[in-house]
């Protein structure tokens, strides 16, 4: 009979131009309440200009057991980074 309020994840854009960042979670019965609760809980100190909420159950996360095949292969691809390349000091704007 008793139903708990579902859990939501809250993402806040701290100022215009920045991405939304995960700040925490809260409980709410629907998206309207979730946005308002997020405002009341997570922006009390002027922390944000925009809020996203998503019900926690809709978040899909990568599995820690997949960490090696997922993330290790990117580690040795140094040629993707600008510092990999030698450019003479005289050359500017590159």
């Amino acid at each position: 009979m008793k139903k708990d309020w579902p859990l939501w994840e809250v993402f806040i854009r701290s100022k215009s131009g920045l991405s939304h960042k995960h700040v925490g979670s809260l409980h709410a019965t629907d998206e309207v309440m979730a946005i308002e609760n997020a405002r009341d809980v997570y922006t009390r100190r002027n922390e944000g200009v925009s809020i996203w909420v998503v019900e926690s159950k809709y978040i899909t996360a990568s599995d820690p057991d997949d960490s090696d095949p997922f993330f290790e292969p990117a580690k040795d691809k140094v040629y993707r980074h600008p510092t990999f390349y030698d450019v003479p000091d005289e050359i500017k704007h590159m």
């Binding site: 008793k2 139903k3 309020w5 019965t29 629907d30 309440m33």
Partner: peptide, 9 residues
């Protein structure tokens, strides 16, 4: 109150 909010949603 909590139940009402669930029912309304």
């Amino acid at each position: 109150v909590r139940e009402a909010a669930v029912a309304y949603a």
